[in-house]
Design a protein around this nucleic acid. Structure first.
Lengths: 236, 236
DNA sequence: ACCTGAACACCGTTCAAGT
DNA sequence: ACCTGAACACCGTTCAAGT
């Protein structure tokens, strides 16, 4: 796609940063499966083998992509930095999670990348370090914070699996599928029908992802605040 | 691996079920990346092309694997079926989530499969239908149940991303890494040091996955119970 | 009907060779 | 030093052919 530019300025030197940026742009545009060594090289107007001077392997290239996005998350969350006393921790953690979410919505392939990599990107570690700091200032014990990070799970970095998305609600095909499934799945279909009825504006799908993300996030944050205040048996 | 058996009984006919079972066994033993058409065929003592009589493509084979595990989850959770009135919903949903977790611990590749597939396996839909039924009997509105499923996310089917697992805690390599990272990540390293100190028995890693899974699950379930009782602004 | 062999278009990666 | 071309060992998949 950018081959014309590459030909016009043919001596722009390759670099690890340029390789990663090209791979990220390709993943944004065509999905993570489109990212092959040969294709990234092609977009850079170069041969596949040239990439190996800046990246040890394809695996390491994906590690680099994960770091790229992790750094964006860290940068985005650093903007949310106000003094934390007591219950104010909640707003800061919430806003940081939502800031992280915005980054991941720009790079939808990144969530899957975080899950598949074994090593945690340095930027993500730094992001977590900030969360730990905020919660510590808020009055949580380290043990409580540790549990809290697990309880938040990927929500802390702005995503949760969209495991439950029935897809396009209003299409004739979906409506027919609902009728067909109703005998097998009476409770589920009944629920979906009512949800769709209550909110006829959500024509694209049944589920407002942003709203549901915030509902789940708030549910966990509220629970953690109760732990912090000692109004729960947990976290002892 | 089972080629000897295949040679001994050379006329055992192929079938979609046998193909899926061979693929699942291979994934259990060597990870999901080892599952290639050629390798599955090899394990069955057959040529790669033969599989295409029972499976449209590799993608459809993975769909089949997801369905296999989903059916196991459904079967395992069906065992948890006691009368539900009011607050008893919580115990049933909890036990079903933990039963689902046991299945996923036997097939560690399945969680990733659920996330990567776009279509939800029929068994998982049936599982969710059961959860909706239980929560409905417990007194939740359909709208509340819908939010609840999103809030539970993958926890409802027994897994959550292990996004935050620092790995082997007690190895000299890890200890050296801690010292090295401390200036950059003071809060995180401080937390981990204290957690490791409080629980010196967890020598394999810092985190007891089962305990953390239950902590997060209970936090969400407690929050949902509060929603059910109307003690929260949410769920209106 | 069920299975196969050869072939095609793709991969990641190695190596020796170019400039 | 940086990039390349040919080659290797693997993929998923098509197609025509075997039994």
């Amino acid at each position: 796609v950018t081959q014309v530019a590459a030909r016009t300025r043919p001596r722009e030197p390759l670099s690890r940063a340029r390789v990663l940026e090209a791979a990220a742009a390709l993943a944004d545009a065509e999905g993570v499966d489109a990212v092959t060594m040969r294709r990234v090289a092609d977009d850079l107007g170069v041969e596949a083998m040239s990439l190996y001077h800046y990246v040890r392997s394809k695996d390491e290239l994906f590690d680099g992509l994960a770091e790229l996005v992790a750094d964006e998350i860290l940068a985005g969350s650093s903007a949310v930095d106000r003094p934390v006393k007591g219950a104010a921790w909640r707003g800061v953690v919430r806003d940081r999670a939502l800031a992280a979410r915005e980054v991941l919505l720009r790079h939808r392939w990144a969530a899957g990348l975080f899950e598949s990599r074994t090593a945690m990107p340095a930027g993500l570690l730094a992001y977590y370090d900030g969360i730990v700091g905020v919660m510590g200032s808020g009055g949580f014990s380290n043990d409580q914070i540790h549990h809290a990070l697990h309880a938040l799970g990927s929500r802390a970095v702005g995503f949760s699996q969209e495991l439950f998305d029935p897809g396009d609600a209003s299409s004739p095909r979906a409506q027919a599928a609902m009728v067909e499934m109703e005998p097998m799945l009476p409770n589920l279909v009944g629920m979906l029908r009512e949800v769709a009825h209550d909110d006829p504006d959500s024509t694209i799908g049944w589920c407002d992802d942003q709203l549901e993300f915030e509902f789940g996030l708030d549910l966990v944050l509220d629970g953690l605040e109760r732990v912090r205040r000692g109004r729960s048996g947990r976290g002892s």
